[in-house]
Simulated assay, not measured.
Amino acid sequence: MAVSERTVLQFGPSSATASLTAKVNPLVIFNICDCFVRRPDQAERVIGTLLGSVLPDGTVDIRNSYVVPHNEFSDQVALDIEYHHTMLKSHLKVNPQEAIVGWFSTGLGVTGGSALIHEFYSREVSNPVHLTVDTSFGSGEGTIKAYVSVNLSLGDRPLAAQFQEIPVDLRMIEAERVGFDILKTTAVDKLPSDIEGMEVLMERLLSLINDVYKYVDDVVEGRVAPDNCIGILISESVASLPKLSPPVFDKLINDNLQDQLLLVYLSSITRTQLSLAEKLNTAAQLP
């Protein structure tokens, strides 16, 4: 497919796209980063298909993705369309409620070739979302943006493909947040163990509790105007806590900690046994 001479314009959201939001499952980001790491040596970026659904309020819920092989040159882009359709059929067999909602690419923003790829996905689904993920994680942050395309024309003459940015809703639970923070750190010594991960979560929880304490004290002292929405959230959080006496709570924590240590111990024994069995098997095969 040859890249057309169509100009690519990039603007902020307009009134037509202001109500659109792309809700992205964190697993989609992890999958895109994994595909980028496994890309061919000559490829500068990876692209692929986004799967999900459109919610009643117009939010595009992106829940799944898969990479599509492609080749890019100075004047053309080639997609493996047959591979795309094969992967789509396979995904629909597992998740028939999902459908194509757009496509993704790694890198910052849109490029000239993005307009041509977007035209292909526009034939697959109406008004597809283009998701871009900065896998370089510059400054320790991953830039994730979403766009939709609006055709600009003068009378019957098409002028340009205008890419307009829409808000991205990327919500994570604490376990996913820990993994995403590690992913943003481009060089790590090792992955945290279960105990280390629990320690990070406890430190974050303590920090959040301190922030809530400070906010409540500021409201009581009159330094901050009260917010009913925040008060309701604090009330619901406190009401959700189980009513346990300190001895029972301490016993519960200790029991869970002992279970975690037991799992670590059993996994260590299993690794040792597998290593011994492999060495014994190797020694038995020697002449």
Rank of each mutant, 00 (worst) to 15 (best):
Y147P: 00
G112A: 11
F137V: 15
V148T: 01
K145N: 05
T111K: 11
T135R: 05
V129P: 00
S139A: 15
A146P: 00
I117R: 04
H130S: 10
F137P: 07
V125A: 07
T132D: 03
E119D: 15
Y121F: 10
S149N: 06
V129C: 04
R123W: 15
G142K: 04
F120D: 05
A115Y: 02
S114L: 06
A146Q: 00
R123S: 14
P128E: 04
V133G: 01
V148R: 00
V125E: 05
Y121M: 05
V133C: 05
T132A: 05
G140V: 08
F120K: 06
K145Q: 06
V129I: 07
H130K: 13
G138M: 11
S114C: 10
N127E: 13
S114P: 07
A146L: 01
T135I: 13
F137T: 12
S136R: 15
Y147H: 01
V129T: 03
F137C: 14
V129F: 02
N127I: 10
S139T: 14
A146T: 00
F120H: 11
Y121C: 04
Y147S: 01
L131M: 06
T111R: 10
G140Q: 06
E124V: 12
F120A: 08
S122Y: 09
H118S: 07
G112E: 08
G138Q: 13
V133A: 04
T111G: 09
S114W: 02
T143E: 12
G140Y: 07
R123F: 15
V129A: 02
I144K: 03
F120P: 03
I117S: 04
V125S: 06
G113Q: 07
Y147W: 00
G138P: 10
V129W: 00
S126I: 15
G140F: 06
S114I: 05
S126T: 15
H118M: 07
S136P: 11
D134P: 04
G140L: 07
L131C: 04
I144G: 03
I144R: 01
E124R: 10
P128M: 02
E119V: 13
T111E: 10
I117L: 08
S126P: 10
L131E: 01
E141V: 15
S136D: 15
I144S: 01
E124M: 13
T132H: 02
H130E: 10
T143N: 15
Y121I: 05
N127T: 12
T135M: 11
Y147F: 00
Y147K: 00
P128T: 08
E141L: 15
S136G: 14
E124T: 10
T111S: 12
G113S: 11
R123M: 14
V133D: 01
V125Q: 03
Y147A: 02
P128A: 04
S149F: 02
G112P: 06
E124Y: 12
F120N: 06
F120C: 08
T135V: 13
A115C: 07
T111F: 07
I117T: 04
S122R: 08
K145Y: 01
E124Q: 11
T111L: 11
S122V: 08
G142F: 01
L131Q: 03
G113P: 06
E119A: 13
S122G: 11
T135W: 09
A146N: 00
G112Y: 03
H118T: 08
G113K: 05
